[in-house]
Design a binder for these strands. Structure first.
Lengths: 201, 201
DNA sequence: CCGCAAACGCTACAGATGTAGCATTAGGCA
DNA sequence: TGCCTAATGCTACATCTGTAGCGTTTGCGG
């Protein structure tokens, strides 16, 4: 997504500094405040242009659609080098990860939920969503490796499969189906991941 | 969703017959053909009105948005009384269900994928999506009950939890993240459901 | 400090969404 | 058959999306 602010790299050099940087800052500030006030529905190209003071056509040129705006916002916001928890057991590690995901999906407003909605209309948002979570799963893989070392998981288990078995139901319930959330949703499906890793069904 | 064709039930009686029924038929036919030709993006209120010969404002009045159109189309199309497979083992039952879901999500065009996209913008689509799959999970619960009877699953296991553990990763990969689909995706996560049902992690 | 062009501002246009108000048609009951 | 009104048709309007063309500002290397 980091190419969102490079409109044309056909000939000559880009100009990331000065006015260009100020424009980006003003636009992303406007996106953040609109998202906070009225949720994803409030983030329209017109509203962003009006609040930021940047012209409509400029917003369209650099970010294309609201998905591009959210994708760039996510890029700007993910400085935090996330590390998976290490509790000493796979089930508790998966549980802690699931609780973080539940928190991210139930906070108001949820950038992740907004990104998912935008991903159905914007390739940029779809790409940002996917790369963000793939990055998380790649980092979390060590939790499964540790479980293999402790003998809690089969030797040949695929870490990503375990992590998705544990967390995908959370997305399904809260994002896709908007089910009334049971209290123990994080625990409930962390067990599925742990059971899959343990093998022997 | 069956109230989509009842605009105002405040006073007097509704008129489901004659012209009203013809209008609905023409509109839903237009939705189906547009969906088939150009996918969900082709299903715009304007296009539906133009192709059906029904006026724009009438379409808006009765169905409100494209989500309402898809929801009503799904209602009209789900006459098939679905029954879960009965292979003799829980893992194979879950596998067969997952393969059906994969087929539904990868066919072109996929009404389910269109409904998911619409559900983020339309309450009617969100409701139709949820009730459709809840119905499926309720029907599929007997597969888990049979597994309990065979001793493959714990006594106190929740059937819906098992089914979602098995199938939610499919939705996650194919609908939310649009991952490149591995061949064995159906098998991979059916194991998670079966392992969860067997318990003892 | 000067010139090139990247980036932005502006206007105009086209299409889709969604609503409001009023006129017209036709279902269904007496 | 005729009345009542549900349902539809029609016009008008407002907003958001997205694109095209052209003029203006300004970053930045020489």
């Amino acid at each position: 997504m980091s190419d969102a602010q490079v409109p044309s790299a056909l000939s000559g050099k880009s100009r990331p500094g000065g006015r260009t940087a100020r424009t980006r800052e003003r636009v992303l500030d406007a996106v953040a405040s609109l998202l906070l006030e009225g949720g994803y529905d409030a983030v329209t190209m017109d509203a962003v242009a009006a609040r930021s003071g940047v012209h409509r056509t400029t917003v369209y040129r650099r970010w294309r659609d609201t998905g591009g705006l959210l994708a760039d916002s996510l890029d700007a916001a993910r400085e935090h080098p996330w590390e998976p928890p290490d509790t000493g057991s796979l089930l508790d590690d998966l549980l802690a990860i699931n609780r973080q995901i539940v928190a991210a999906l139930t906070q108001e407003p949820s950038i992740t939920r907004a990104l998912v909605a935008a991903s159905f209309r914007s390739p940029a948002a779809a790409h940002a969503l996917r790369s963000f979570w793939e990055n998380r799963y790649a980092r979390a893989a060590v939790a499964v490796q540790r479980a293999v070392g402790r003998g809690e998981a089969m030797e040949n288990i695929d870490a990503r499969t375990v992590l998705i078995a544990s967390s995908a139901p959370i997305f399904y319930e809260l994002v896709l189906m908007r089910s009334p959330m049971p209290e123990d949703i994080a625990e409930r499906y962390a067990r599925a991941g742990a059971a899959l890793a343990a093998g022997r069904p």
